[in-house]
Simulated scan of single mutants.
Amino acid sequence: MKKLMFSLSVAAALIASTAHAQPVVRIGTLADYAPFEYKDATGKLQGMEIEIGQKMCASLKVTCQWVTMDFDALIPALKAHQIDAVLAQMSKTPEREKSVDFTRIFTTAPVQLVARKGSNINQMPATLRGKTIGVQTASTHESYLRTRLPSSSSGINVKVYQTLDEAWLDLESGRVDAVFADSTVAYDWLSKTGQKEGFDFAGRPINDAEIFGAGTAIAVRKGDSKLRGQFDLAIDQVHGNGTFSTVNKRYFPFSILPK
């Protein structure tokens, strides 16, 4: 009888524990997009978005389960129900909104070219004719070059990379003349490596709201208004209570908080 009572007590405890367990939200992200998301020397996922994402999940009383993959696999994985959301510096654009729903804007940052100092490369198309520009695959930067400056008319060669780390290496070695990326990740590379090797921002930021959108946001499946609403509230909270700004200052000397 004692054994039976003990077994029943254990079973009841397990049921109670399960009933009070926090829901799990599977968040698709990257492992190679410093300083927003990357793996440290021990293999642990780190970065500004990971840090703030954990705080948002805590405020929502859910458990974040981070799932890393290549950028071009994120939306297909979301649509296939392999993940529940995407937090990976994904720009909220009209084209992507055909496939997924987005929260309110989470971060903002201009896009810019990076090239060797003295190269005379800038945002003007004439300076890019005959040059090879590196971009990350499936990015808005690739879309901009192929849509606004097709090679057939601009004379610009586009070289696509799975990760920006590969693009930076080719820029250093001279296999590409410039890299086109968000100013945030470009600043991170320049401050750690690029400026010491003679590289810097080339020209002014390039604006195109139709292609680059108004900023980055969290993506959820089409019609998942509940999760989108929860993340909207969490974004409002970290934006409003100073959490975002505090973390922002540890990564950048400029604000990427939406205005």
Score class of each variant (00 low, 15 high):
7 S>N: 09
8 L>A: 11
9 S>P: 10
12 A>E: 13
16 A>F: 07
17 S>A: 14
19 A>L: 12
21 A>Y: 02
23 P>N: 11
29 T>V: 00
30 L>H: 01
30 L>Q: 10
38 Y>K: 03
41 A>H: 14
43 G>Q: 07
45 L>Q: 04
46 Q>I: 04
53 G>S: 02
54 Q>S: 13
56 M>L: 12
62 V>N: 02
70 D>T: 10
70 D>I: 06
78 L>G: 00
78 L>H: 04
83 I>Y: 06
97 E>P: 04
100 V>H: 13
103 T>P: 09
107 T>V: 02
107 T>R: 05
113 L>W: 04
116 R>N: 03
117 K>I: 14
118 G>F: 03
120 N>I: 04
120 N>M: 03
121 I>K: 07
130 G>I: 11
137 T>P: 01
137 T>I: 14
138 A>E: 14
145 L>Q: 06
145 L>F: 05
148 R>Y: 09
151 S>F: 03
154 S>Y: 07
166 E>R: 13
167 A>V: 11
167 A>Q: 06
168 W>P: 13
170 D>I: 01
178 A>I: 05
179 V>T: 08
180 F>W: 02
184 T>S: 15
190 L>Q: 10
190 L>D: 04
191 S>M: 13
195 Q>H: 10
200 D>T: 14
202 A>E: 00
208 D>P: 09
209 A>Y: 11
224 D>Q: 14
225 S>M: 13
226 K>Q: 15
227 L>N: 15
228 R>I: 07
231 F>S: 09
232 D>T: 06
233 L>F: 14
250 R>A: 15
251 Y>I: 01
253 P>G: 13
256 I>T: 14
256 I>V: 14
257 L>H: 12
259 K>H: 13
